[in-house]
C-alpha cells in the first residue's frame, strides 16, 4: 500500500554561523558558563504543524510563494529530512527530482549519470541498462549521452533527470519546480508521460508555478505559506483562493477539453467558494 502520512511534523534548521559552528565555541562555552543566548544556535522553522495523508491515486499540487517551504516539505516526504518534531511515514518507492545540477557528477557521461541516479533510486545496473534505450529516446539527447555532463545545458540536465524518474515506475513521484527549464515541445512529452505515469503509479506530489501544468496533472492541492499549510483541498478551490481568481476561467478551451473540466463548473465552483 502506497501512502504518505505526516502528523504534526515540524522541520527546524539549526543555523550555525561561523562562530557557533566551531568546536572552540562549544568547549570554551562550557568552560566559561553560558553568556546570555550566546551559546544558543538560532533556528529557522522551515515547516510547522504539517498534517497530511496521501493515498494511492492522489495527485497533489503544492503551491505557495518562494520560501514558503515547498521544497522542504518535498524533502520531508522523500525521507531526506526526518521531522524534528512530529512524525512522518512514507511507504512506497520514492523518486524525487529537485533542483537540477547538483547531485549529478559533471565529469562523467550522461549514461553513467543515468545509472548512478537509477542505483540511488533502488534500481540495479542491469535494470538501468535495459531502460537506457527508452531514456535515450525520450530525452532526445542521442549522442550527447556519451558526453560528460558538464557539456549539458540546464534544460538537458532536466531532461535527463526526468527521463530517469519516469522510466523506473516509481510508486511515489516527487517533482520540484526546477523542471520548468525545458522547452515547450519537450514539456508536452513530459506532460503526456507524467499523466500516463500518475495513472499507473501511486502518488504524485508536484510543486510548480505553472497553473496549466498543475491543472492537468493534479486533483488536489496544498497551499503553503511561511512553513505552514494554509489550505488543502480540491485543486480548483485551493488555486482559486491562492490566486484570488479561478485559474480555470482563463484557461483555453483546448486545455479545458484535455483535462475534462468545463468553464461553467469552474464558475459555479468559484461562486460557492467565495
Amino acid at each position: 500500500m502506497v501512502s504518505i502520512d505526516v502528523w504534526n511534523a515540524a522541520v527546524d534548521f539549526p543555523i550555525f554561523d561561523a562562530k557557533s559552528r566551531s568546536l572552540k565555541k562549544a568547549v570554551l562555552g562550557k568552560a566559561g558558563g553560558k553568556i546570555g543566548t550566546d551559546s544558543k544556535v538560532p533556528i529557522i522553522e522551515a515547516l510547522h504543524d504539517i498534517n497530511l495523508s496521501f493515498r494511492h491515486g492522489d495527485r497533489v499540487a503544492l503551491v505557495g510563494h518562494n520560501g514558503a517551504g515547498k521544497s522542504t516539505l518535498l524533502r520531508l516526504m522523500s525521507g531526506i529530512y526526518e521531522p524534528t518534531r512530529g512524525n512522518a511515514r512514507v511507504e512506497g518507492k520514492v523518486a524525487p527530482v529537485f533542483d537540477l545540477g547538483v547531485g549529478m557528477d559533471p565529469e562523467i557521461s550522461g549514461y553513467e549519470n543515468i545509472v548512478i541516479r537509477g542505483l540511488f533510486l533502488g534500481m540495479n545496473r542491469t535494470q538501468m541498462e535495459k531502460r537506457m534505450d527508452d531514456i535515450a529516446e525520450f530525452t532526445e539527447l542521442g549522442d550527447y549521452l556519451s558526453m560528460p555532463l558538464r557539456t549539458y545545458s540546464t534544460g538537458m540536465r532536466v531532461r535527463l533527470a526526468l527521463g530517469v524518474v519516469t522510466s523506473i515506475d516509481p510508486e511515489i513521484l516527487i517533482l520540484d519546480e526546477g523542471i520548468g527549464a525545458v522547452d515547450v515541445e519537450f514539456m508536452e512529452k513530459v506532460r503526456a508521460r507524467l499523466k500516463n505515469l500518475v495513472q499507473r503509479s501511486g502518488i504524485l506530489v508536484f510543486a510548480s508555478h505553472s497553473d496549466e501544468f498543475l491543472m492537468e496533472l493534479c486533483n488536489t492541492a496544498i497551499w503553503m505559506d511561511k512553513g505552514g499549510i494554509v489550505e488543502q483541498g480540491p485543486l480548483r478551490d485551493v488555486l482559486t483562493h491562492y490566486k484570488g481568481k479561478d485559474p480555470f476561467e482563463n484557461a483555453s478551451q483546448e486545455t479545458l477539453d484535455r483535462i475534462g473540466e468545463t468553464r461553467s463548473v469552474a464558475a459555479s465552483g468559484s461562486n460557492e467558494s467565495t
Partner: peptide, 19 residues
C-alpha cells in the same frame, strides 16, 4: 469525489523517535 484524503486519516502512531 475529489474530497481530500484527510478524511481517512489513520490515528496518529505512538510518538516514534528517530533516535
Amino acid at each position: 469525489m475529489q474530497a481530500t484524503s484527510t478524511v481517512e486519516k489513520p490515528p496518529a502512531p505512538p510518538e516514534s523517535s528517530s533516535r
